[in-house]
Design a protein around this nucleic acid. Structure first.
Length: 529
RNA sequence: GGCCCCGUCGUCUAGCCAGGUCUAGGACACAGGCCUUUCACGCCUGCAACACGGGUUCAAAUCCCGUCGGGGUCACCA
């Protein structure tokens, strides 16, 4: 039998990092066994705008390289894959449940139910519906309806015995039927609820393995009941540990962002991304742009391979040392047996480390390809196809080496190359630290004059010029190099200084030194602070 | 509260099923050092865990019992 797995997103408008992990494991498992992976859309609750709310999710999966064989946009033999379009199937199933005596019409009002529940609570016994307003015949149903009552359909769960869920990760898990409620499967208006829909869909789509987060484990008995009552074969189950908050065992949730922002590592990664978004001129709100949302990583310029590799290791490992996997290796090695049982907390710093690693694997040209669009977005170049930009960027990227961790970093590290000589920003802290020294003006001026006398302006010549200068001045390099860097780049950090000067060229370098000299010494120095 | 799941360094994990080779291994983070014009990379060193208590056994992170702790779930949400 062909392995078929599925992931069932709700169209919420964004792709959550925890959801991706679940989808990834489904994808990996199906690929490992030469099967199919499908996307089913759980939109029974949604009103309209499903397409708009779904687009970012589909886009996110595509970006990560998680492709689906059936589902939205690709179709498939069991269309439609939207729950909102499958109501007839669900109603048909409800009718069969009713006919088989596995479900009943119920006419209790919410208040009556609430009263029963409260009474159970007072008596300190587990609540179980009395079935007092259960209608097992049409006559009974009519009688209730004549009182103006509205009927829903409830599962008629056994009141004794046990059910054993065979789970690939948890082993055998036992539940008492008597603890299970008579869940509603169909509302008075005829619409159906998730658990029923999910079971029907999994059967219709011929899903063989249900791999989902463990929060669904306690829902499984009712689904088993539905499936068995309908005569469906049971799928194999695997309940994954959930992804937890940074530094905690609580489930990761998009709603508790404020709390995560207090986590040092999370905050660091977030701020880094926000700075890039700002440089790009993106209008971002914390709700939709943060390290819990996949889109964040795409916008900032992370690599899909880094994210997928990191996520794969959240709750799974091959052995005691292997950390890096190509897609092919992931597929070849994935197995449910090696999925962990305990929750794994999301560690943005570790994701960062994977990103660092994968970025280092890229050639200069591959980095340039990814960074050109960022420069264009930030209006530092006209377009990604700008003929002049590419050669310059190649040199910048080569000089920057491993400093560029994400594609967006090019904006922070190299904006000054693309800005006019009188228009690049000077970091106030750097100025304070390296330019506000009594001896800085003289040193800068004399170094500028030495550069002015240079015939060739390549890295080697610059290095030699610097050494000669140090000898003449009888100083150490630290006494001058920082001031020069801040003067020409505006920053305290960046690629090697000789690289920066060489890339800027003689004319621009001198212009920048002159401007800084004028700005900070001719006019500012001597004036009261 | 009921039911269910889980519990190895701060974090991700290996080891547990088939007890000894575990004075518990790797990775990230952190600290210190080296390299160095800054930052980053790289390299070296260090810090740091078997939740607790009983058993079983010559021997327990590994098996059994109990306790404690954490989490999930208890909707006419998905």
């Amino acid at each position: 039998m062909t392995v078929r797995t599925r992931f069932a997103p709700s169209p919420t408008g964004y792709l959550h990092i925890g959801g991706v992990r679940t989808a990834l494991f489904n994808w990996l498992f199906s690929r490992r066994h030469g099967g199919q992976f499908l996307l089913r859309i759980d939109d029974t609750d949604q009103e309209r705008n499903v397409d708009a709310a779904l687009a970012p999710i589909l886009h996110g999966f595509r970006w990560l390289g998680i492709d689906w064989d059936e589902g939205p946009e690709v179709g498939g033999p069991f269309e439609p894959y939207y729950q909102s379009q499958r109501l007839a199937r669900y109603q048909d199933a409800v009718a069969r449940l009713l006919a088989g005596g596995f479900a009943y019409r119920d006419y209790a009002t919410p208040d009556e139910l609430k009263a029963e529940r409260e009474q159970a609570e007072r008596e300190k016994r587990p609540f179980l519906y009395s079935r007092r307003w259960m209608a097992e015949s049409d006559a009974q149903a009519r009688a209730f309806e004549s009182e103006g009552r509205q009927g829903v359909v409830r599962l008629k769960i056994p009141r004794e015995g046990k059910v054993v869920i065979k789970d690939h990760i948890r082993g055998d898990v036992e539940f008492d039927w008597a603890r299970e409620q008579d869940h509603v499967v169909q509302r008075a208006d005829g619409t159906c609820l998730y658990h029923l829909a999910s079971v029907v869909d999994d059967f219709d789509f011929q899903i063989t393995h249900v791999i989902r987060a463990e929060e669904h484990l306690s829902n499984t008995p009712r689904q088993v009941f539905i499936a068995q009552s309908l005569g469906y074969p049971l799928p194999e189950y695997a309940h994954l540990p959930y992804v937890a908050e940074p530094g905690s065992k609580n489930k990761l949730s998009k709603r508790k962002l404020d709390k995560y922002l207090k986590n040092r590592d999370f905050a660091l990664v977030n701020e880094h991304g926000q700075a890039i978004a700002k440089a790009l001129g993106l209008s971002t709100s914390a709700d939709t742009f943060n390290p819990v949302i996949v889109d964040f990583y795409e916008q900032v310029g992370y690599l899909p391979d880094a994210i997928v590799n990191y996520l794969m290791l959240l709750g799974w490992s091959l052995d005691d040392r292997t950390e890096f996997f190509t897609r092919q290796q992931m597929i070849e090695n994935f197995s449910l047996q090696r999925v962990t049982k305990s929750p794994a907390s999301f560690d943005p710093k570790k994701l960062w480390a994977f990103q660092d690693h994968y970025m280092q694997q890229l050639s200069v040209d591959e980095k340039v390809d990814r960074m050109l669009p960022f420069l264009a977005h930030a209006n530092l170049i006209d377009s990604p196809d700008d003929a002049d930009a590419r050669p310059l960027l190649r040199k910048i990227v080569a000089a920057a080496g491993d400093r560029l961790k994400v594609s967006g970093d090019i904006l922070a590290y190299a904006d000054f190359f693309f800005l006019p000589d009188d228009g690049y920003p000077l970091d106030p802290d750097a100025v304070e630290k390296h330019l506000r020294k009594p001896e800085a003006a003289g040193l800068l001026r004399r170094f500028r004059d030495r550069l002015g006398g240079l015939d060739s302006f390549d890295v080697e010549s610059l290095e030699r010029a610097m050494h000669d200068f140090l000898e003449a001045e009888q100083i150490k390099i630290g006494a001058v190099v920082h001031a020069v860097r801040v003067a020409v780049t505006g920053k305290a950090v960046g690629p090697g200084l000789y690289d920066c000067l060489a890339l800027l060229g003689k004319e621009r370098s001198l212009a920048r030194l002159d401007r800084t000299l004028q700005l900070y010494f001719d006019t500012v120095v001597g004036r009261p602070a």
